[in-house]
Each structure stands twice: as C-alpha cells, then as structure tokens.
C-alpha cells in the first residue's frame, strides 16, 4: 500500500504542483529540526532498529553524521524504512532528504531518475549463498539451480547476465522484500540466495541455521553503494558528499571520536583545516566551522563506523577488503579539504 501511496504522491506532485523542485533541502531540514533519512527495512549491520526502536548500523551512522554536521546532534534523524522497490520514489517525492540504503550507483539511476549519487561509501559485489549440504563450491556449478532474489535490485539483472554469459540455465524467483526472499530460501524453495556480499553476511545471521550456509567465492558484479540525493540542489549534494569525505579524511589523518579534542589543538595544517581551526570550509557549504569535528565526535571516522557495525567489532565480521583506505591497499579515497 505504501508504494501505491508513493506513486500517487509522485503523480499528484508532478501533475498539479508547478516547479516542485526546490534547491532548499538544507533550509527545509533546519526548519523541520530533523533530517529524514531513507534506510532499509532491517539489514543487520547496515540499518536495523533494536527492540526500543533505536536504529543502528553503517548506513544509519551516515544519516547520523549528516544530522551531527547540521544540528550537532546525531539523534535528530527520522528514519524511514524503505523496500528496494520504494526507495527512489520516496526520494523523488521529497518524502526523505537523503537515501542511505545500500543502493548501487548505476548510470540509469544517476541519469534517468532525477537523482544524484553523492559518494561510494561501500565497494561491494554480488555473490551467492548456498546450503553447505548442496556440496557446491563454485557459482559455476549452479547450472539448473533455482535462485531467490529481491525484485527491483541490480542483483536481478546481474544474475541474468552471469548465467547467460556462462551459458547456464537457472530459475529466478523474485520477491518484493528482503524478508520474503529470505523466508523462501529458508524453506528451500531455492538452492541459492543472491544479493550483494555484504548483505549475504547480514542476511545469514537472520537464518535459522547460519552455520549451515556458505557464501560462494565468486563475485559476479561491481556494486558501488552510496547515499543518494535529488538532482537540482547542489548545496545539499555538497553537504552529503562532504560529510562522507570528512569521515574518510578523518580516518586518514588519524582523527577518531576519542581524539577530537587533541585534533582541535593540533598544529598540523591538514588536521587544522579538518578541525575548522584554520579556514572556514564548513561555512562555505552552509554549515559551521566545526562541522567535521561534530561528525567525528558523535559518529566517528569511516573506519570506526565500519568496524563497529560490519567489521571486526561486529557479528558480521566482514573484511574491509576494497574498503580499506587507498593508503592501506584499498580504494577508499577522498579529495582533500583545502
């Protein structure tokens, strides 16, 4: 029902309201006193609510980082859980200010939906999960298999490409939400479950017997995941983009949530620019001088958020791999603050 409401809202908005594109997102958020952030409907490690309704996770941290930069308060976020199908419509209709929901950056989404991807905060790839009892060790052994996937995702397209390229047959059963997909996989309706590898790790924890599942070694696609905003509001686009870059730069400069006070006293020029004690970079994008320190103090740098939610400090225990900093063998890289 929610999706119908959204579509009707989109139709009504674009039909009867002239010039509904506003370049005022930052002002709107300030006036409202809270950021509305689109997240998943429950993906351990990335965005899940606990039993008291507090959201945590890697994608949630990013929403909190933006709120911290604007309000100096990471709690001023309203989370809007969205299915893969509804997420872009929710953003187009201004129901949310930013989408932080492991969404893959593709050319079509960037150019034809009226949206902009602000950054890549997680370099992912698509993989397969199977039951160990199947005795399959490679995705190339999946010829003839039934595969469960979530509809409205890039994974649905990648799996078709992969099987076609390798001249293998398959049956795809596409469900509209992640939970329905997982339920069908758990009921053995399909032999394999496919989605981005990071989600496979997270979904595995939701299964009845996580130990009896294995994730196959093949990565069949590039999945650059990142936050998304509406096109046509460059200031807001900059705020979201630089919130992310600040988290990367902080990690690179060794500034963590515990060393914020030392950073404020630092004499190193690049740390001083990050801390706002030199220059006024924050004010240039409509924020305050200490915008980056607000983010780091309340949420932490990129590495802290990663380890706490999905890395070694979490149940998921995902290796950072490509998501290490460029200086440490990965490809996470941010333009300098200067």
């Amino acid at each position: 029902m929610k999706r119908v409401t959204l579509v009707v809202a989109l139709a009504a908005m674009s039909t009867f309201v002239a010039g509904s594109v506003t370049a005022q997102t930052l002002k709107t958020v300030r006036d409202r006193g809270a950021l509305t952030c689109g997240v998943s409907q429950g993906l351990p490690g990335f965005s899940t609510p606990d039993d008291r309704g507090n959201w945590t996770g890697f994608d949630v941290d990013f929403c909190r980082a933006i709120a911290a930069a604007i309000f100096n308060d990471p709690a001023k976020v309203k989370f809007s859980p969205l299915s893969a199908k509804d997420r872009f419509t929710a953003l187009q209709t201004s129901e949310i200010d930013v989408l932080s929901r492991n969404s893959t950056w593709t050319m079509l989404r960037d150019t034809q939906l009226g949206l902009n991807f602000a950054a890549v905060n997680y370099y992912d790839g698509q993989g397969f999960m199977v039951r160990k009892s199947l005795k399959v060790n490679s995705a190339l052994e999946l010829n003839g298999a039934s595969i469960c996937t979530q509809t409205g995702t890039t994974t649905e397209l990648n799996v078709a490409d992969y099987f076609r390229a390798n001249k293998m047959k398959y049956e795809v059963i596409a469900f509209s939400t992640a939970d329905e997909t997982l339920k069908a996989y758990d009921a053995a309706r399909c032999d394999a479950f496919t989605t981005d590898v990071s989600q496979l790790y997270a979904m595995r924890l939701k299964l009845a017997k996580p130990d009896e599942q294995m994730i196959l070694p093949e990565i069949i696609s590039k999945e650059p995941l990142g936050p998304v905003v509406r096109q046509g509001d460059d200031q807001w686009f900059d705020v979201v983009k630089w919130t992310f870059f600040a988290m990367i730069n902080a990690e690179e400069l060794g500034v963590t949530s515990k060393t914020v006070d030392e950073a404020l006293k630092s004499t190193k020029p690049d740390v001083r620019r990050l801390a706002g004690t030199e220059g006024n970079f924050g004010e240039q994008i409509g924020l305050t001088k200490d915008w980056a320190m607000r983010i780091i103090r309340h949420v932490g740098n990129y590495g802290e958020s990663f380890e706490r939610n999905i890395g070694s400090g979490s149940k998921l225990n995902i290796d950072r791999g490509l998501n290490k900093l460029w200086s440490k063998g990965g490809i996470q890289y941010a333009p300098p603050i200067r």
Partner: peptide, 23 residues
C-alpha cells in the same frame, strides 16, 4: 507477495523499478 510473476509483479514492480518510469 510470493513471487509469482504476474502483471503487477513483473511490470508494475520490476519494470517500474528498473526503468523508474512510474507514471
């Protein structure tokens, strides 16, 4: 809800999402 590929699922669902042409 159960992944049967009817008109609503494959056209108003998957196709809508892949193309984004809701209206």
């Amino acid at each position: 809800a159960i992944g049967y590929p009817d008109l609503f699922a494959v056209f108003a669902g998957t196709t809508l999402n892949q193309t984004g042409q809701a209206i």
